[in-house]
Write a protein that binds this DNA or RNA. Sequence first.
DNA 1: TTGATCATTCATTAAAAATGAATTGTTTTA
DNA 2: TAAAACAATTCATTTTTAATGAATGATCAA
Lengths: 291, 291
Amino acid sequence: MDLRTIKTFQTIARLGSFQKAAEELKYVQSTVTMQIQKLESDLGVKLFERGKKIYLTEAGRLFHEKADLLLRDLDYVQNTMKQWLHGETGKVRIGAIEPMAIFRLPSILLPFNHKYPKVQLSIQIDNTQNLTKMIKEGELDLAICNTPNLDHTTLFEPLFIEEVSLLVPKEHPLSEKEQVELSDFKGERLLLSGFVCNYRISLEKSLVEAGVSPDIQLEVNSMSALKEYVQVGFGIAVVPDVMVKNPPPGTEIKKISDLKIGVTTGILRKINTVTNGTAVENLIRLIKTHF
Amino acid sequence: MDLRTIKTFQTIARLGSFQKAAEELKYVQSTVTMQIQKLESDLGVKLFERGKKIYLTEAGRLFHEKADLLLRDLDYVQNTMKQWLHGETGKVRIGAIEPMAIFRLPSILLPFNHKYPKVQLSIQIDNTQNLTKMIKEGELDLAICNTPNLDHTTLFEPLFIEEVSLLVPKEHPLSEKEQVELSDFKGERLLLSGFVCNYRISLEKSLVEAGVSPDIQLEVNSMSALKEYVQVGFGIAVVPDVMVKNPPPGTEIKKISDLKIGVTTGILRKINTVTNGTAVENLIRLIKTHF
DNA sequence: TTGATCATTCATTAAAAATGAATTGTTTTA
DNA sequence: TAAAACAATTCATTTTTAATGAATGATCAA
């Protein structure tokens, strides 16, 4: 069944004449005849009763009704794709590391959503390593994460460098000090995010360099969760500043004077996806303006 | 946009491979490639990202979703037409004269409706003349009416002959008699159905032959209405027996001993509409078994 | 019955889709 | 890092399908 044939059918039904339909659709009459004959044989039913005037058969009327569905769908699909070209519709699958997803993305995505209400947004929170994998697999359109292990299929554009600080419970001895040093970590129970990432690697390296080997008590794969553990006195943790702008009650932030690790955060995406679509491009542009 | 191409697209999306799709759809690989290329250029967007593994682009995912609609509707349309072939769906436009529509059709249509609940029924009540016109115009699939003026485009199959009787108000002098004769009509106020039909023509002819020229006081184009007029004493009326099986309160039925008109009722339809469809055929068969 | 109006038929042409062989590009593995 | 393996693409060719135009057939109205 050809969609053009269905259009022809609907035109005939509307105009009540093969000839007029042929004129309107810029066909020769015989073409119309043959299209309908083919359609009829495809469907196995006669659609028109022929005479000088033509009438829809019962089957014809039925088909007329239902075929409308098809043409409307076709219109809808074509329209959708056109809208998509202008970035007005579609779905953007965003991957983000937790601090980004929780503390920065909401205010970035809100205006985007207002401007393009038909663009669906999907947010996947995970660590940089997994996000990178998902980007490579094509499961995400863009990821906001830390510097990944680059390869030739991906592109990473840094956005900003995230500072980190120490989060300590109020009753902890270190909470007395204005600033802390890496050497203060000696013997402390350190809580870490539960996956290997650049930030964690740098931290551990810095600690080793400072001659400190802290006691790693607990790993959790959520920074938000980590804060709760600090709060109840489980230990101390190094977390991105953005996550502790408002430190949880019973905890305090300390700058680490001699820790020089900055965690680079940026946009990761596949190379060569010029066809990512305007929606993704628009979003990336918007994100960049925020930093 | 070709529907087969869309099917190919969906298959690729499902199997994640041009090659596998080609196998499943019994194409050569290159065909699949070219179909998709055409589709992409038609839509103006890239649908897949190519590599050893292929991925849907954002546009591809969007199209995937929307195109599903199209294919589902296509299925639906094709199914509907298949059902129609078995008389299980469709719409039957029935025309009927009033006595038929009110007193006989309901009990005929009920079992039909139970057996074929998806077949829509439409009933148009009118006189034989108009029904005939509608049949010729293709506005009805079948009509149950009196013998029409036949022509070569229509076919009339008689079902039964309707007897007529006289309906009189109880307080009327004629209600005393067991039977009436045409001569009794002399000077009576006769009520008639308001359109020219075989039954009315025969009646008037019979009256003239009996030397009676009754006083025609009122015409209504509804037999049901006619009964009401008789009931309130407006006059007397000759009506089909079926309409007065239960004469309205305050009225009585009298056989007219010397009136020999029988009103033939039958099925009228267009000749050559072999393609009327199973539903119509089924209904006609059912109607015939009732008489 | 004739002429006018449409739809249909059919041989021909034109266009589009499918094929198969060769090629390019990517990933895997040796 | 080369090469084998795999998958998509290109392109010339064939096949299929659709469109055309002229002739024919059917129906209606005068």
